[in-house]
Amino acid sequence: MTFLGKLKQGFGSTFSFFADCWSELKKVKWPSRKELVSYTIVVLVTVIFVTIYFSVLDLIISYLVRLFTE
């Protein structure tokens, strides 16, 4: 197979890949606006709680390390 033939075959599989991706994306059931807002709120609240938890944990550990090293 010549170089141009291999090049065409390579791009053909790339275009085929993107066509397959597009057809799979059409099958997805996308969330409604109301669902999207509620999911976003759940994620943000979870991130805030995890951030607070690890911040408090970090403060406690740093206090204990300072207590034992001084």
Rank of each mutant, 00 (worst) to 15 (best):
F3W: 15
I60L: 11
T69L: 13
I48E: 04
K8G: 05
V50R: 03
I60G: 00
V50E: 03
L57T: 11
K34W: 08
S38C: 08
V37M: 06
C21F: 12
L7Q: 10
S38E: 15
K27T: 15
M1V: 15
T2Q: 00
I41G: 02
V56Y: 06
K34E: 15
Y63S: 10
D58W: 08
S55N: 09
W22K: 09
V43M: 14
F11S: 02
V65P: 00
T14N: 01
V50Q: 03
T14S: 00
F18W: 13
L25T: 01
K26A: 08
L57I: 07
T14E: 01
F54Y: 12
D58K: 07
R33V: 15
K6T: 05
I41P: 00
Y63N: 04
G10T: 09
K29P: 00
S23M: 05
S38F: 09
I52S: 04
T51W: 05
V56N: 02
K6V: 08
V37K: 02
T46S: 14
C21L: 15
E35N: 04
T40M: 03
T69Y: 05
S55M: 15
T69W: 07
F68H: 10
I61T: 14
L25Q: 05
S32K: 09
I60A: 11
E24R: 14
Y39Q: 14
V47S: 10
F11W: 14
S23A: 11
L57V: 11
S16F: 03
R33F: 15
F18C: 01
V56S: 03
L59W: 13
F49T: 08
L36I: 09
L44T: 10
K6G: 10
V50F: 04
I52Q: 01
F3N: 10
L57A: 12
D58R: 11
V50I: 11
L64C: 07
L57F: 11
L64R: 01
T51P: 00
I52E: 08
W30G: 00
G5S: 11
I41K: 12
V37C: 03
K29N: 13
M1P: 14
K27F: 10
V42Q: 14
E70G: 14
F49I: 13
F15L: 03
K29A: 13
L4C: 06
V28K: 10
V42E: 14
V43H: 09
A19L: 06
I61N: 04
T69A: 07
M1F: 09
K27C: 04
R66N: 11
L7P: 04
L36C: 09
T69V: 15
